[in-house]
Design a protein around this nucleic acid. Structure first.
Lengths: 217, 217
DNA sequence: GTCTATACTTGGATAGAC
DNA sequence: GTCTATCCAAGTATAGAC
């Protein structure tokens, strides 16, 4: 709401009024990117969703573009943390795919990947934005590569295809699946693929590990 | 240029002045979508590139959105024809991947998939546009499914994963690879993947067909 | 830090001359 | 069919009051 009252703990507590507004603006930007797309995410639309005045966008972030990037930073940080936690829980390829599916559905529901997709697509329209977005997408690829490396370490696939190449493909596929699912409001196609991947992963796991079921490490 | 002179064969030849202008506008729209993105593709920007007046966008297409869709139709028709020809030439999975790679580079150079990506991303910002875009993307999936079916018909993969599911993934991957390549102006990641896919395809082909090299059908 | 008001620009769309 | 001129809405950004 960003009104004036509601004084904090006075000693500049964990979140000042200013920080509160910044946060509200970032959250509103994520929301707007997801629901209105890049070109629909104007300073006025953001402020409306944040429940504050349009001028605050410029006071706090200077330009709309900066706020868009702050939103992308927020999403990136939020999701990479979540992805890491999810991957840490997975013990084999099958579990990794299973985990990826839950996370994918979260992303779809919350529109996080929409934010990414809108920023990538929107980057063409603003000089210099492409590089900024690219530098924020890079960690996603690094994360995916690390995850691939860890999970495929002692399987024959590590020799067949390098983790970096596979990671590039995984990120691209994830992005593409999100866009298609969002486009026709139907995640069925993507979910069927995850299901199939899980099944194939189980099959491959059984083959490469031999008849032994677990604890062979 | 869309000026008045240059009379045609008088009997309403293969392209009247009107048709010429429509074509110029569509071509300019494709160009603009690729270079300026969805939000940068305004009636004025399009007219500037077409070398004609801004009002003609509305005279010929009613709204900018209609012109955008006409551009998407053009790209879709152009590329599906090309894809079909390419697939018809391929005799096995390896050749199919090889063909897909050339076509992918064409798409990247000409920006055709950028047009698709921008329209998908931009659809969020205009009510009703999503459905229009979706109906124009559907043929791509159908095409991919048919291509998969034909190529995998007598391999064990046909049993392992249905053509429709695979097709959905292929389209998503293609779209995602294009967006990433366009974002950081580097197609290396995508090309490495194609290269790897070709290699794996060769390996799988050899396995599933046995030691025989060709003409086993 | 936040709000109101406003200057300036760009874009969608139409009217009317040619 | 095409162009010029114009209206109106929406967007970015800034100034100044509170």
């Amino acid at each position: 709401m960003a009104r004036s009252g509601a004084k904090r703990t006075a000693g500049q507590g964990p979140s000042t009024g200013s920080e509160e507004t910044r946060r509200a603006l970032v959250a509103a930007t994520i929301e707007a990117l997801r629901e209105e797309g890049f070109s629909g995410t104007s300073a006025r639309e953001i402020a409306r969703r944040a429940g504050c005045n349009q001028g605050l966008v410029f006071y706090h972030f200077g330009t709309v573009t900066n706020l868009l990037l702050a939103a992308l930073d927020e999403v990136s940080s939020l999701r990479l943390t979540r992805y890491q936690a999810a991957v840490d829980e997975a013990n084999d390829l099958g579990e990794l795919v299973q985990t990826a599916q839950s996370v994918f559905e979260e992303d779809l529901d919350a529109g996080y990947i929409s934010v990414l997709a809108e920023m990538i697509a929107g980057a063409s329209s603003t000089p210099g934005l492409g590089a900024e977005v690219a530098s924020r997408v890079a960690p996603w690829r690094i994360f995916a590569a690390d995850a691939m490396r860890d999970t495929l370490a002692d399987t024959p696939f590590a020799q067949l295809i390098p983790a970096e190449e596979l990671a590039h493909g995984i990120v691209a596929l994830y992005l593409g699946l999100e866009m298609l699912a969002h486009l026709d409001g139907d995640r069925g196609g993507a979910l069927a693929l995850f299901e199939r991947a899980r099944q194939v992963a189980g099959l491959l796991g059984a083959l490469s590990a031999g008849p032994a079921t677990k604890e062979e490490r």
